[in-house]
Design a protein around this nucleic acid. Structure first.
Lengths: 249, 249
DNA sequence: ATTTTAAATTGACAATAGTCAAGGCAATAA
DNA sequence: TTATTGCCTTGACTATTGTCAATTTAAAAT
């Protein structure tokens, strides 16, 4: 499953970096250096982008597809840290590590990313206070996400975690009925939520029975989101709609 | 249990802020303003320092005692986020929140803290890039801690989590036998590790049987740490001694 | 020393999630 | 269409953790 292909396609690309929140207020010199160094890379489903412990050279922006970040124990058990898609950046926190990635990254379906040299970012952060502040904000946002994750894992049961996950897929203020499409495999959703596929399957059924959602394959129809929140957010310390998690770029 | 006493003792204090890592390279003007604004506050066991959602005015440095950070659901169930002691800082990440503390803080035993106005820190971070960088490093360190926590909760069982906790109390490179004293109540250790007191008690017994540690009240004697690591770190993605967690200031 | 109190342990049982194995379903390839 | 493949579901069982109640232990107060 995990194969590393070094003969990677790495073509220069046109990309408007300033459209990404982190770079919105960066100056021309830095941005053009980044843009010049930007390389497009593609990974097929199952291919490894980097491994936990690899020396850090690049950070990545996802243009298309899905990437999962994970760690694994000696016996091969995986813990999925997070799953990202278009517009998200990953690997950039390695700036503050000891030169090694703190987790592994793998394409969970065909994916197209922009690879950017991390040294440029590192140097610019040292020189440009605004960038450092944006980075701080982005890390604070991520931290809230992780804090919430830990809370969910200790206070919510499997069905409630799924309910919470679904609610976050309901963008912003859709108050009426909605049908959403699971963003990836149910197996992957399960691992993202820290449970086994079988547990996920059963917990989703239980959620259906308790909240009246309808499930057709990978589509979920929700007539009353409020019934979902009543059930899921019961065991959560934050008020719905968990404002600080919604857009976790 | 949770009482808020507004008639708080708040005396000016002498404190060498530059001895704290975050302020080590800060300039005189800022440091002296902080020092002048610093106030000592004492909280008795069980008193609340601030509540999740309170407006943010201060961040804190612990001089003595223990403080727990937690969140709670509507029905009163608590999730302990972390437990801190002497030298640690808390509440400072509220800088990047919307003006409200993201969790509650409570003294778990009599505690003495320094309260510092968060506005000063906020402004200085905006002006002083070195401080911003130190803050970034500190947040990255905390993030690693949280990442690991999530991993532990999904991959380790109760006994292994306790073993890991004990190993982290064994400072640095003590390779031979050691006896350590639990830093606080077993009940608190349990909640810190996300389990019930009864589960903790049983899991600790199991750990004793499997690794040959000896338990006398709140003291744990460890003849061979390696036996502990064999058992606990088996289900963890990082090599012992989990370098990046050790000193989590 | 005795009483009072809180913490810690233990037992019995319930709830939840994990594991293993067997089918079912749906998309794709032949 | 049929066969193949991989994902998903379900059943039966196990393991782990949580819950409630009873008891023991240890610490603090009188």
């Amino acid at each position: 499953m995990q194969e590393k292909i070094s003969s990677q396609i790495a073509l220069p690309v046109e990309i408007d970096l300033q459209s990404y929140p982190l770079f919105r207020q960066c100056e021309g010199v830095f941005v053009s250096a980044l843009q010049e160094a930007a390389r497009e890379r593609r990974f097929e489903k199952g291919q490894v982008v980097f491994l936990h412990g690899d020396g850090v050279e690049c950070f990545y922006i996802i243009r298309h597809g899905w990437v999962k970040l994970y760690r694994e124990t000696l016996d091969g058990t995986q813990a999925v840290v997070d799953i990202f898609t278009t517009g998200h950046m990953f690997g950039e926190t390695a700036i503050f590590e000891d030169g090694m990635y703190p987790y592994s990254a793998e394409a969970v379906e065909d994916v197209q990313v922009i690879a950017l040299p991390i040294d440029l970012l590192k140097n610019e952060i040292k020189a440009n206070n605004k960038l450092a502040l944006d980075m701080l904000c982005s890390m604070a946002r991520y931290r809230r996400r992780q804090d919430r994750e830990i809370e969910h894992r200790s206070l919510q049961n499997a069905s409630q975690r799924i309910g919470c996950f679904l609610l976050r897929l309901l963008n912003q203020s859709e108050d009426g009925a909605a049908h959403i499409h699971l963003p990836y495999d149910k197996m992957l959703v399960a691992s993202r939520l820290g449970m086994q596929p079988e547990t996920f399957s059963r917990a989703l059924s239980r959620l259906r029975d308790k909240t009246g959602i309808r499930i057709k394959g990978s589509t979920v129809e929700i007539d009353s989101p409020s019934q979902l929140t009543d059930y899921s957010c019961m065991a959560c310390s934050s008020e719905y709609p968990c404002k600080d998690i919604l857009s976790g770029k």
